[in-house]
Each structure stands twice: as structure tokens, then as C-alpha cells.
């Protein structure tokens, strides 16, 4: 790739990122989805279920909950990624972009960058809401930033999965239905809201070994400190391996699905 074409590829991705973020800013429903929904989730679990879920963590359930909500939200935020791409493929928007002499990578990178930014806003909102209802970081600033970075990286990896699903299915309703099928079990059958030890044995086997649990355990260790009740153990490097593996599998699949949209 020459320097010129690299510059253009960056330009194209940036223009489409700007486009996606402008649309997001101007549609109130998207803002609600990004900010209000995670706020409600945080408050719901904190006050409705929180009292019934016993955890032996300093500061109580809210400290256990918040990294879980963050992990879950990062995963669920990718639904919007799949839906936007499906709609664009269905309406022919992607076709029109492909007829222009733009970099092949621009549509996917523009989507990733915009949705990554959107996700960051959501994560910061959740942390702010968390602070208002008793959550506190206790591992230091570096670890707190590390937690946000890990959540963001995991969210972007799942964005690749969602890009593939959106472009492969190309139908809003199908994407929505399918999104619920994989995202709900993946996020709820994990350590996001309850300790996995409370689940029946056969479910525990899945919960303990799936990526969301590793990521959320790592988020917790970063947020609350690497302690006996929230040990980091193998969780950080397992999370990084999972993230790398998900990107390595689904990015090429998404690119292939993008080329096939027609």
C-alpha cells in the first residue's frame, strides 16, 4: 500500500466515522439506547435484585455489579452495530458506497470507530451512575483506566461478530432476533450479575469457561484490586487471548460478508 492510498484509506474511514456519529447524535432514540438503557439496568440490578444477591465483597453488591454491567453493556452495544449494517445492506446504502472509489476497509472501520466511541460514552455513563449509587474504584487510577480499556477492547471484538452477523443476515428483524439468542445467554450465564458458584453444575461448566466471565472477572480485579475475593488469576491474559481470537476469526468473516453484500 502506497502512502497516498493509506492516507485515503484513513480519510475514507474517518468520513464514514463522522457520518455514523452525526447520525447517532441526531437521532434521540439512539442516544436513549446508549445512555438511558444502561442507566436503568444499573439501577435495576442495584436496587431490585441487589438485596437478594449476597456477595462477600467490600462495599457490597454494587461493587460486584458494576464491572458486570459494564461487560454486559459492551456486549449488548454491539447489537446496534449489527442492526445498522443490516439496514444499510438492505437499503442499498453499502452498494452505493461500494460504487465509489473508496478504500475497501472504510465502511467496516468507520463503523468500528463510531461504535467504539459510542460504547466509550456508554461505559462512562455507567461508571458515573455507579458512583452515584455507591460504586467505588479501589485499585487505583491506572487499574481503573485499564478496566475501561479492557471493556472497550472486548466490546470492539464483539463488534466484529456483530458486523459479520449484520452483513450476513442483512435483515433488521433477523439480526435483532439472532442478537438476543447469542447475547443473552453469553452475558447472563456468566459472572456478570451473580457468582457462577450459584448456578447448577452443568451451567457452571459453561459459565466458568466462556469469555464473558473471564473478561468480567478481569474487569472486577482491575476495578476493585487484585484481592482474595476478586482475584485476577488467569483472567486477564485469558481475556486478551479470547479478544484476539474473536477478532482473528470474525474480522475476516465480516470482511468477506461485506464483499458479498449485493
Amino acid at each position: 500500500m502506497t502512502e497516498q492510498s493509506l492516507r485515503w484509506a484513513v480519510n475514507d474511514a474517518w468520513v464514514l466515522t463522522w457520518r455514523n456519529l452525526t447520525v447517532w447524535r441526531r437521532v434521540p432514540a439512539y442516544l436513549v439506547f446508549t445512555i438511558v438503557q444502561p442507566t436503568i439496568f444499573t439501577l435495576l440490578f442495584r436496587f431490585v435484585f441487589g438485596g437478594a444477591i449476597p456477595v462477600a465483597i467490600p462495599g457490597g453488591y454494587v461493587n460486584y455489579l458494576l464491572p458486570g454491567v459494564i461487560g454486559q453493556t459492551a456486549a449488548f452495544a454491539t447489537m446496534a452495530t449489527a442492526i445498522s449494517l443490516a439496514i444499510e445492506a438492505q437499503k442499498g446504502v453499502i452498494d452505493r458506497l461500494r460504487v465509489m472509489p473508496i478504500a475497501r476497509s472504510a465502511v467496516l472501520l468507520g463503523r468500528l470507530a463510531a461504535d467504539g466511541f459510542r460504547m466509550l460514552v456508554t461505559l462512562l455513563v455507567i461508571i458515573a451512575v455507579g458512583y452515584a449509587v455507591g460504586f467505588r474504584f479501589s485499585g487505583g487510577v491506572g487499574a481503573a483506566l485499564g478496566m475501561i480499556a479492557l471493556a472497550e477492547a472486548f466490546g470492539l471484538a464483539l463488534c466484529c461478530v456483530s458486523m459479520f452477523i449484520g452483513l450476513a443476515l442483512r435483515q433488521e428483524e433477523a439480526v435483532q432476533a439472532f442478537g438476543l439468542i447469542w447475547l443473552f445467554p453469553l452475558t447472563f450465564v456468566s459472572s456478570a450479575f451473580v457468582p457462577v458458584q450459584s448456578m447448577p453444575g452443568w451451567l457452571q461448566a459453561f459459565a466458568v469457561n466462556q469469555p464473558v466471565t473471564h473478561v468480567i472477572n478481569a474487569l472486577r480485579a482491575l476495578a476493585l484490586g487484585d484481592t482474595r475475593v476478586t482475584p485476577m488469576g488467569d483472567n486477564l491474559w485469558l481475556s486478551i487471548v479470547w479478544i484476539a481470537a474473536i477478532v482473528a476469526v470474525f474480522m475476516p468473516l465480516a470482511v468477506r460478508a461485506y464483499k458479498r453484500v449485493s
Binding site: 457520518r19 452525526t22 447520525v23 437521532v27 437499503k91 442499498g92 446504502v93 452498494d95 452505493r96 460504487v99
Partner: peptide
């Protein structure tokens, strides 16, 4: 080339 037709290139919110 240019391609036009049924207004698919237009972003409604812009």
C-alpha cells in the same frame, strides 16, 4: 462511473 436511482445514497439525518 456514477450510480443513482432510488435515493439509496442519502443519509436521512444529514
Amino acid at each position: 462511473i456514477g450510480l443513482a436511482g432510488q435515493s439509496t445514497a442519502i443519509v436521512d439525518e444529514l
